[in-house]
Amino acid sequence: MRDKTMSLADVSQQIESGMTIGIGGWGSRRKPMALVRELLRTDVKDLTVVSFGGPDVGLLCAAGRVRRVVYGFVSLDSIPLDPHFRAARENGSVATSEYDEGMFVAALRAGASRLSFLPTRAGLESDVMAMNPELRTVASPYDDDVYVAVPGIRLDVSLIHLNRGDIHGNGQYLGPDPYFDDLFAMAADRCYLSVERMVDTAELTTAAPVQSLLVSRLFVTGVVEAPGGAHFTSCEPDYGRDEPFQAAYARAARDERSWREFTERFLAVDEAGYQGAVEGLRASTAAAGGNT
């Protein structure tokens, strides 16, 4: 079996301007943030981002890397709206394909199965049809139903983050929810997986049930060990969401100066620099005596 180990930079070099990129996780939960941060260190642009969106979408929009976002929602969970995506939507700097969440899943499932569409009831008579005029309906060949024919989405690249993995690209989640990371892997021509910790293959099933093996190496092109790689989103049970940091991220969006300071401190550095700056913020907050 091949060793598919890569570095963060190896992955970002595989991504080109104009690509359609799927990003796993859900809202502000288990997002492949280290891979997203690495992408921000390149000069790729004009991306189509397909995501149950969270700060992944916000960061890429803030950096001007996005041409279109395909989504059912973009939220930070404990903060309802991502301020950068909200700004991008309000100033018209990104195009949007806003779907019902179930339609979004149908699009991924169709893409993963190499189907041109999958039928669903969701979307009928809603303005999702008006906002996405390319959508068509399909008449049932069996009765008088009509469904939305959700077009399959194929992704050039998917980025996902899991708790454990091996060097061959087998990925394991240990938290309460797999989200849709297996679908993102299967709907992509190439999927890159980052993991909290790389372990021997045999170790994957000594500590957790086989049902936790979410993604097979069949669908993984490269794997990166990235401890803290979902920060500041949650990666249960390894760590929860860093709420003070997320709040600082959202606050920094309020004006250009704040955002420039945030960018210089946390994004204009490499991944080790980022993790160090996060530690620094945590230490100074603790020294100030609180979680204000």
Partner: peptide
């Protein structure tokens, strides 16, 4: 106007699917 909203909200989420199911 959704093309350039005065105020972006969270997105349609599951509302289209919920209401028809």
């Amino acid at each position: 106007d959704w093309r350039r909203p005065e105020r972006a909200l969270i997105g349609v989420r599951g509302a289209p699917g919920n209401t028809v199911n």
